[in-house]
Design a protein around this nucleic acid. Structure first.
Length: 497
RNA sequence: GGGGGUGUAGCUCAGUGGUAGAGCACCUGCCUUUUAAGCAGGGUGUCGAGAGUUCGAUCCUCUCCGCCCCUACCA
């Protein structure tokens, strides 16, 4: 069901036919470049320093996509775009010869070409490659988006990201920054003695978080499997196995709603370090985030969607219960469930059914406090009820040794002293099962295999998870994680009539 | 899931109950240092899809589809 060809496509295909009839192959296999556009420009700047304004460079070979062409009779200017940027080309009939010159002016925007020529500076001051030879490497059969406004239609930008990348250079910058962020994460963790590992994506049981999983089916084994919703439980097994410090940067999948901060598949960093605790994780997280801001942005203070965010040590720290208490004007450590339910009602919140003290505290926090945490802030001491894998706080058994890091009102990281008491862990899973029975469909499943592993002895461990997409969106000042995911999910086109 | 917005040429967008426009792109011609090149000429379209109202619908009504924003659930 190929769409009908437009006028411009027909014209381009006619040119293609014409070229082939002249014995020119419009799809070549190789072109040896000597310089990228940026390297060529740097090269000429050097040549110019020693050779003066009339300088010419040595002969260079450049390749890229033709993104602008201005035919002015017997001379033609064009712009060639490659990964590094753009460089102007000048083709002159007396240099190329009549027939090659005609073929050059007959090129279309979007064609991929290779050229040979020397570099000079035009009267208007632009460093330019005057070509003596060119070759068509790949004929483009469809017209490019508009040159001045770029590609704006979000649907097209996401569905045909390659066009977005061609037409909007700042989009390329965003994805390069994201790549640097991941690379610098690895650099940082290597410096701290972490080992990178890979754990199963297909799991018999989707654990490590409370979320609805995607289900799939293994034909040969004839069993249902789930796509992972977290990395946690397998990484913990590795700590039990003797890895001291492990991490994984991997895709996880949650079968839930999507918006500017949620995607059904997203990239999570999780790390575990033996013999440390939530305090150690806080130090590590703060150092990592500051390192990343420094390396990706080069400055500790950034603008995010018009608000200034300062990444300076130490990040703010606040107890979750205290933060909520402050807003409601009441010490909630001393509040009972009916009191909390009253507050929930008063603020017009409709929570999941059957929540206890901790669940209600967490609910109030999300509704009343979270959005206000624009500057990087560690929120500490989450209730046990919402933390089935975290170690209980010795000073208050209703709470855990846990933190979440909020930036721009969004949860970026989550960490805790890992629960390493197998019997307590079993009890937590049983609590989760009770919550499920009471109507909560996002509870942690009972995982006997994991409990078995814990029973062999799980060293005291600090663990941390960080949402890579969210952090990337904040560090690149993008309003949605869709803008830092190359191919975000969209509904399939061509739905039934 | 609920509310709002939007869909018109390859792209960016205007517009009207009487059969569709601009800029860029494209085609023809002129132009040897231009650069959102310029000048002269050319409109290339299932006005998201279907049904209805109407003499006549791109426009009005209904249904459906995509995308965006807000809201609900989740990290």
């Amino acid at each position: 069901m190929e769409a009908e060809r437009t006028d411009q496509e027909m014209q381009r295909r006619q040119k293609l036919q014409m070229l082939r009839s002249q014995g020119i192959e419009p799809y070549q296999s190789r072109f040896d470049r000597t310089h990228s556009a940026a390297q060529a420009i740097a090269l000429f700047e050097q040549v110019e320093q020693s050779g003066g304004a009339e300088a010419r460079s040595e002969r260079v070979a450049l390749a890229g996509r033709l993104v602008a062409i201005r035919v002015m009779g017997k001379a033609t200017f064009a712009h060639l775009q490659d990964f590094s940027g753009r460089i102007q080309l000048l083709a002159k009939v007396d240099k190329l010869g009549a027939e090659p010159y005609r073929r050059f002016t007959d090129l279309d925007l979007g064609d991929v070409i290779g050229v040979h020529g020397t570099l000079f500076r035009t009267r208007r001051g632009e460093i330019t490659c005057e070509i003596d030879d060119f070759v068509l490497l790949a004929k483009s059969l469809r017209p490019l988006p508009e040159k001045y406004h770029g590609l704006k239609d979000k649907e097209l930008r996401y569905r045909q990201r390659y066009l977005d990348l061609i037409a909007n250079p700042e989009v390329m910058e965003v994805f390069l920054a994201r790549s640097r962020l991941v690379e610098e994460t690895r650099t940082f963790l290597r410096g701290r003695g972490f080992t990178e590992v890979e754990t199963p994506v297909l799991q018999a049981m989707a654990g490590g978080a409370a979320a609805r999983p995607f289900r799939t089916h293994h034909n040969a084994l004839d069993m249902d499997l789930y796509l992972r919703i977290a990395l946690e439980l397998y990484l913990k097994r590795l700590i039990i196995g003797g890895f001291d410090r492990v991490y994984e940067i991997g895709r996880i999948f949650r079968n839930e709603g999507m918006d500017q901060w949620h995607s059904p598949e997203y990239t999570m960093l999780e790390l575990y370090q033996a013999y440390t605790d939530v305090e150690g994780m806080m130090e590590l997280t703060e150092s990592l985030v500051i390192h990343l801001v420094e390396r990706v942005r080069g400055t500790p203070t950034i603008q995010y969607q018009g608000q200034e965010i300062r990444f300076s040590r130490p990040f703010a720290r606040v107890e979750m219960v205290e933060a909520v208490s402050r807003v409601v004007g009441e010490d909630l450590l001393k509040a009972d469930v009916p009191t909390l339910q009253g507050l929930i009602q008063k603020h017009g919140i409709q929570p999941k059914p059957g929540l206890g003290w901790g669940g209600l505290i967490a609910e109030l926090f999300e509704e009343l406090v979270q959005d206000t945490l624009v500057q990087p802030t560690f929120v500490l001491g989450h209730p046990v009820e919402v933390s089935p894998l975290a170690r209980r706080r010795s000073s208050d058994p209703r709470l855990t040794d846990r933190f979440e890091l909020f930036i721009a009102g969004e949860e970026i990281a989550n960490a805790f002293s890992e629960l390493n008491d197998p019997d307590d862990q079993r009890a937590r899973f049983e609590d989760q099962a009770r919550a499920r029975a009471a109507g909560d469909d996002e509870t942690h499943p009972m995982d006997e295999d994991f409990l078995t592993a814990l029973e062999y002895g799980f060293p005291p461990t600090g663990g941390m998870g960080l949402g890579v997409d969210r952090l990337a969106a904040i560090l690149t000042d993008q309003p949605s994680i869709r803008d830092v995911i190359l191919f975000p999910h969209l509904r399939a086109r061509h739905a039934e009539p």
